[in-house]
Each structure stands twice: as C-alpha cells, then as structure tokens.
Write a protein that binds this DNA or RNA. Structure first.
Lengths: 145, 145
DNA sequence: CGGGATCCTTATGGATACTG
DNA sequence: CAGTATCCATAAGGATCCCG
C-alpha cells in the first residue's frame, strides 16, 4: 500500500493517451461519459451483459430498486445511444426483449475494470468513510482536547 | 463490426468473475458504483490523474462547467471515500491542494478503459442517435408511406 | 405484458452574498 | 484564496392510473 510514484506517472500517461490532448475530443468524451455515467445505465448494462437477452419485467426484477419509469427511460436512452437493441414480438400478450449491441458489449467490457476495482476496494472505501467521519467528529470540538 | 458470439461470452465471463456471484457483494458493488458513477467525480478524477496535485481554483478552471458549490461538494465526498487527499497549508492567503490517493489512482486506472472506449466510439454513438431520431420521425407517421 | 401520461415530492445544482 | 450559507429554479424520480 506504499505510494509508488511511478504508478502515478503510469496512470497519467494512460489517461493522456486516452484523450490525446485534443481539447475538443476531451469535451466530447466528457459529454459521453456524463451521459453514460449513470447509475441505472451501468447496472442495466451489467445485468444485460450477464443474462444476454431479457424482457422488460425480467429486467425490472433483476435491477432491484428501479421504478418502471426509470427503466423505460433508461432503456430508451440506451437504445438511442446504440447500446441496446429492442425487439418487439408481435404477439399477445406483448413480448419485448432487450439485448446489448456490440457497442453496449464494448462498454460493458470497458466498465469491467471499474466493477473489479469496486469489488476489491469496497472495504477500503468503507474504512476511509469511517475514518473521515471519526476525524470530522473529533476535530469538530477542538476545545474539548 | 460483425457480431462475434464468443465476445459476448467473454464479457459475460469477465463480469461474472467481477462479482463472483455473491448477491450481497453485488449489492455493495452497485452501491459503490452508484456513488462513484457521477459526472463530476469522474471528471475531477481524470483532471487530478493528469495534473497530479492542484489547488481549488486551478481545479475549478480545469473542470470547465463546474460550479464552486459542486466542486466543493464533490471533493468532500471524494475525500470521504478516500479517493483524494486534501492538504491545507497554513499560510495567508490560504492554500489548499488536492491530489489522488492510491485508491483514487486505482479508480482512475480502472476508468481508463471507459475513457478510451468513449473516445473511440464517439462517432458510433452520434450516428446511432441520428439513426434513432430519424427512425422515430419516420415511424411516427406510418400512414405517410 | 409493456409501457404512456400524469401528479407530486424530493434532490440537484446554479447564483449570490458573506467570511476567515 | 477557499470556502460556507442561503435562496431559488429546475430536473430527477417515485406512485398511481390507464391503455393496447
């Protein structure tokens, strides 16, 4: 857990590569990130990557706390961005299935590193929060020391 | 750009590995993702990864459209999560510097893939949106055909 | 079943003014 | 300089009802 200066440079280099120093590209990338960096978008992306193809109701169950409104809304946005394909089967009762496009699959793969990081650093974050809160509590009354 | 079925499986496998099928871990990861999947958090993360150590005003300029309120708020949250270190130099005028922790650096590296993806697929997303909007416009009046 | 439309509450976030 | 505090507008999002 020691600070490794070369690690900093390594990461900085990677990120510099990622945007190739072009400010216009950077702005566009920021925009895309902002669009895609949505709680529900990422969770839906993950669920679809896991299960392959799902119906609306299946999704609503697998995504846990999502409301039907947000599910519809997010799926529409993802479809518009070319991340998912919406297939309507003209039967009764209606059957609509969602699956990732190659684009969506690629994004899922790209996010893979973040998921792994999140899993591996859950405890570290939890501990950091506790430490922060403790520090905040003690420094709030300096005169008590 | 042809659909490669093995690609699907590959991604699914990676994502399955990432959460090891434990539902509790999955829920926690979702929570972390939701916390970290914030527009400003990711952009600040990126800027700090690029520049190493920055003062408040420098950050506010580099992050572009951010308000001072959101900058403070996001930096505090990131500090609490153990992603950044806030160093206060007891001088006048005040000087406060922010830099990423190892944890933050790790997250930056994990997000690297997403940045690259975003950059590489900007045009694809743009095109997908245009297509979607065109389709929506034409299918809105089926009787015109 | 898969949503669309509506209402209503809460959260987000910008602008401004003030402070150590 | 680096914030905090406050006000206020808008957007996000949940609950509910309804329809093909």
């Amino acid at each position: 857990m020691a600070v490794n200066p070369s690690k900093h440079l390594e990461v900085r280099e990677k990120l510099a590569q990622a945007q190739k120093l072009d400010p216009r590209v950077e702005a566009l990338v920021n925009q895309v990130i902002a669009r895609v960096a949505d709680k529900w978008t990422m969770i839906i992306l993950d669920v679809l990557a896991e299960h392959g193809e799902l119906r609306f109701t299946q999704l609503s169950k697998l995504v846990a706390g999502i409301s039907q409104k947000m599910l519809t809304q997010t799926l529409r946005a993802m479809e518009r961005d070319g991340l998912v394909i919406r297939t309507i089967h003209p039967v009764v009762p209606p059957k609509v299935e969602y699956r990732l496009t190659d684009l969506g699959l690629g994004l899922g793969a790209a996010f893979c590193g973040v998921w792994i990081w999140a899993e591996q650093n859950l405890n570290a974050i939890d501990q950091a929060r506790k430490d922060y809160d403790t520090r905040a509590a003690t420094t709030r009354h300096p005169n008590c020391l």
